[in-house]
Design a protein around this nucleic acid. Structure first.
Lengths: 146, 146
DNA sequence: ATTGATTAAATTGTATGCAATTTATATAGC
DNA sequence: GCTATATAAATTGCATACAATTTAATCAAT
């Protein structure tokens, strides 16, 4: 393949991912607005609904985000009354995040989001699962190398 | 599938895309640093190497970005001497972006980037092409609906 | 106990994304 | 020609991302 083909925007896997990721985020936006959440706030809540009482560090390793992103985001969710932030008594370096009752209750309202996401499109569930698995495989190959 | 499964982070296609997109961007970072570009600046240059003399509007429709993102980005690339920004004489509403010689010359330095990207990983070219096609198919299905 | 290294968050600074508004220009219809 | 509408960029404000640095707490090793 020559240089021109190699450098074409439409031939870049990265651009496909990058743009598709943002398009999917746009599908989420109206659904998440009903919950009062942004997309990053939503995936943070997903992580907390799966496992509560985690440190910023643990949360960051699940979401692949660092404290530079998480600190302001968690402060925002705290100000919204969805969680609390407190230093771990046994190791004051760790800040422990805990869902409030309100934060836990939001899970019920969020439960319909995944099924509603691709409503109105011709995207099929099997397609989603298959693609997700392939993307995760790619991710592990990338992470193995670094 | 019950609510807990549906809301698991690892079951979200969006999160797979979102995190994979950022991981690939991290692979790019050291390569693009040699060119003095960020990732978004790089895909903007890709679009311009394909077609020069375009308006912000046209560029935005290719990159799926609006003037809120592009205006400061193009000003930055202009200050780096890679392009010029000038109003279209025949319609002053349009701002035309043109590559400078320096901007065109950068294409040669960039030509090795795509091939070097997955060096050191076990990711195979066929895998990349196949996945890119599937992601693009998903994108069209999403865009058809909206 | 003291000091040096390590670790976890927070902070700082830069660069995106994007909704909403504003500004400037062009077009349509009368 | 004049006004209402439409269009393209720019601007504003908020929310990420992330590298690099700083701060605070813990651990290691003598």
């Amino acid at each position: 393949m020559d240089t021109n083909e190699l450098l074409k925007l439409e031939n870049q896997l990265c651009f496909a991912f990058y743009s598709c990721s943002r398009e999917i985020t746009k599908l989420y936006r109206p659904l998440l607005a009903e919950l009062g959440l942004t997309y990053t706030q939503y995936i943070t809540m997903l992580a907390l609904w799966e496992q509560d009482n985690v440190s910023v560090k643990e949360l960051g390793s699940k979401l692949l985000l660092d404290s530079g992103t998480l600190t302001p985001l968690l402060k925002k969710l705290e100000s919204m009354g969805l969680l609390t932030r407190a230093r771990d008594k046994s190791d004051e370096r760790h800040l422990v995040v805990r869902l409030t009752e309100q934060g836990q209750a939001l899970k019920d309202k969020a439960s319909c989001v995944p099924l509603r996401l691709f409503e109105g499109t011709t995207v099929m569930p099997e397609e989603i699962f298959a693609l997700r698995n392939q993307v995760q495989t790619l991710m592990s190959k990338i992470n193995d190398a670094t």
